[in-house]
Amino acid sequence: MVNDRKLPGMKNRLKLGMALLAFGVAFAPAVLAQDEGPSVTLMKYVGKAQDAMKVGRYQEARDEYRKAIGLAPKTPEYYIGLSDACYQMKEFDQVAFALQKVIELNPAMKDECAGEYGEALFHLGRYDEAVPLLKAGLRYIDSPAAKARRTAIAAAPVHVAPAAPPESIIRATAAPPEKKEAIPLASIDPASSAGWHSIAHKHQEVDINKANQTLAGAIRSEGVVIAEYQGYEKGDINFFHPPKAKFRITKILKGPPLNKDLPVRYEFKERSSKEPAPAGWKFSDDKMPAKGSSWIIFLEWCAPRDGMFDTYEGSFGRLPANDENLNQVYAELEKHSNR
């Protein structure tokens, strides 16, 4: 019922987002001076995000806005774009995060974002926080300030997506293409007596799934954070139906900025493992970490699935944040950074 009649509202949001983005793009040089990001790449991301939004490819738009935010994390307009894209996909935790960031970066927009922020918090079940924001949003929407803003947006020229930079510039700024080695041909003749079976057998010797389970593999996750365990949501929990564990991010080592409250799918096994549940396995509180303990979490994707973030390869993607592990992770991050 609550979701009825959303579309017209969305169109207006889109228009507002586009206008703000046009503004953002117009002042991009100033922004870039502030964030010191590579301008061509940033423009490319923003242009792609806008194009994706126009045709309803919201996931792509979200990803592009995230990339833009990675380069210019102090530009509220990109967070507005991110919130619009996530709103369309009903990823309200991301909407809340993005709008929180907008307000942090530009407190003057607090009233303007209040309604949407409250709505996102409502969908996240954070009712007590949502009420004053929704009321503020309702007060603002009828205020002269809001009317003046709407008039300004309506009067703003229709935004034209920034022209893609010349191919030569893209090529100059792009990373050098990786040298791809030719795929060697099978040394065993399939027509021979050994046939394909032998080739298949050879391949079975290497467990492809396990090959990824190294720290170097985990570092390639979209996000790496240090987070404090706070508890879990009780419910129907078993070995194959993990609980939602609540972590609080204390530091982001890699990836886009995330909401500090991090719901994690707390898997009890490594994802590639095909083994059944250990005999007599029964869920109890001792299967979960100690409250307040610190963990390094490798987030496979920085987008939640069913309201929870997946860790890299299940239980493999959680490491206690002790000195030894931290040193290893920092060393790997250093190795993989472009600096």
């Binding site: 609550v2 017209p8 509202g9 949003g137």
Partner: peptide, 24 residues
């Protein structure tokens, strides 16, 4: 037309937020 659309969108936003408050 654009003014009408904006007003309609604004109204539906208000409806949405009132509905959220009602549920709460």
């Amino acid at each position: 037309l654009s003014c009408g659309t904006a007003a309609f969108a604004q109204n539906s936003k208000k409806i949405e937020w009132h509905r959220c408050l009602i549920t709460i």
